[in-house]
Design a protein around this nucleic acid. Sequence first.
DNA 1: TTATGTGCAAAACATTTGCAGGAGT
DNA 2: ACTCCTGCAAATGTTTTGCACATAA
Lengths: 140, 140
Amino acid sequence: MTSANMRLTTQRQIILEELAKVSSHPTANEVYDMVRKRLPRIGLGTIYRNLELMAESGMIQKLEIGGNQKRFDATTIPHHHVRCAACGCVRDVHIQPLRQLDTMAAEASGYQISGHNIEFSGYCRDCLEKRRSPAHNIDH
Amino acid sequence: MTSANMRLTTQRQIILEELAKVSSHPTANEVYDMVRKRLPRIGLGTIYRNLELMAESGMIQKLEIGGNQKRFDATTIPHHHVRCAACGCVRDVHIQPLRQLDTMAAEASGYQISGHNIEFSGYCRDCLEKRRSPAHNIDH
DNA sequence: TTATGTGCAAAACATTTGCAGGAGT
DNA sequence: ACTCCTGCAAATGTTTTGCACATAA
C-alpha cells in the first residue's frame, strides 16, 4: 500500500489531524481516545491499521522506543528522543545529524547501516521538581 | 530487591549461565527454551521475574530496542546495537562513548540526561546475500 | 524457621486478523 | 460497480500476577 492508492477516508483524515495537534508522541490507544471524541464509532483496529499504513507510506513516523507500546509522531523530520525514567513521557531532541556514527557502526559490526536513532534517558523537569520536594523525598 | 538479598537459586544460576553463553540477545521466551533443556519444569513466569530482577540489580541488561519483545544481554558494559531490518537479528556495536551527545541533548530538551543508547538499523551479511542472490531477487 | 522463590494457571495488555457490511473513486 | 475500508469481535502473542507449595539461608 502506497499513499498513491490509499483512499482519503474520514477516519484517516481525522487520525492525521489529531496526531498533528500534539507533540506528545501518543500511543495507538491515546490516538484512539483523541479520535473517538470526533468519531465515536471508530474501532481500535482501524486506528492500528491506519497508523501502520501511514507509517509505511512515510506520512508519519512509528517510534520504536522503550516502554511497552509503540508511539506515533506526525513529524517526519529525523530527530531523536528523550524518555523520562520516572514518568515515561517522551520529548523530541533535535540535534544535528551525525553521519559519522553510521560509518563507525558499519566498521564495528559488518552490517550495511542505513541509519540510527538515539534514545536519551533522564528526568523531565516535572519529575525533577517532585524529587526535590520534601514531601516526595523518600529515597528507599 | 537488590542483589544483596537475592537468593542464589538453581533457577537463577542456570538462567544467568545460559544467557552468558550466547551473544544473540535472546528474548525471554528464547531464554526459557534454553533453560528448559536443563530445568524442564521451570515456568515462564520464573524466567520473566528473574530476568527483570537481575536487570534491576544490574547483573544483566534489559534491552529496549525495536521489535515486539524485550531482549536480554549478560554483558553490562555499555554498548550499542544494530538490528537487521530484514530478519530482526540484533548484534553489538562497540564504539567509543560520546558524552558530548548527552550535553547536546540536555541543552536541546531541558531534561537532566543520564545517558543514551543508539539503535542502528541496516542489513546483516546473511540478508544482504539473500537480496543479491537471483533466486530471492524479487523486488515487488 | 521463615521470608523469599517457584510452578502453574489465569489474567492483563497490546496488537492483529477474519468477516460481513459500508463507503470512496 | 468494484475495490478498498471499517466496525466489531475474536484470536494471538507477550508479560504479569495470585496462590499454594518448596527451598535457601
